[in-house]
């Protein structure tokens, strides 16, 4: 079941496109915003609401890397692993995350606080290495800053 708030937001997106189905990625993003991720039951609810088959919607949901079909932590860390950040040593930042949080790419801390994911170029290459936590971008990241940065996310 979709909440009335989710339905209201989805309808706003549907109004911007000529075919209902065209708003399905937006619908998935809306549900993910409210629920953290898109579970099978969430997927079914969105598919019904968008008048699509579950299989068709799942083929779309699983295509896009920022639609989460598995549970994620309360905060998602996206660490850029593309070329400029590689040259500038993102691996040191990754090592620091591994030491500090005890998780590798694709994993979530046991307390459900953080999920760590690699991400393609974040478009801030003159300030590499870069990462995002939820909606915030961090630039020129040094290993020793991580603890302080992570403190902001409970």
């Amino acid at each position: 079941m979709l909440s009335s708030e989710e339905i209201k937001e989805i309808e706003h997106e549907v109004a911007q496109v000529p075919h209902r189905k065209a708003a399905c990625i937006e619908a998935l993003k809306i549900v993910q915003k409210h629920r953290g991720w898109v579970s099978d039951s969430s997927l079914n609810a969105v598919a019904d609401y968008m008048e699509m088959s579950t299989a068709e919607l799942d083929s779309i949901a699983t295509f896009y890397n920022l639609i989460f079909r598995k549970p994620v932590g309360r905060h998602v860390i996206l660490l850029c692993d593309s070329i400029s950040c590689w040259v500038m040593g993102y691996e040191k930042v990754y090592d620091a995350f591994k030491n500090h949080l005890g998780i590798h790419f694709g994993e979530t801390t046991p307390d459900g606080r953080f999920t760590l994911l690699p991400n393609v170029c974040l478009g801030t290459c003159d300030h590499a290495p870069a990462l995002m936590i939820d909606e915030d971008t961090y630039r020129d990241v040094k290993e020793e800053q991580l603890e302080g940065i992570l403190e902001k996310y409970k």
Partner: peptide, 10 residues
């Protein structure tokens, strides 16, 4: 804009 190394349109 997602071409690695590209940060101009931002």
């Amino acid at each position: 804009e997602m071409e690695p190394g590209t940060f101009k349109d931002r």
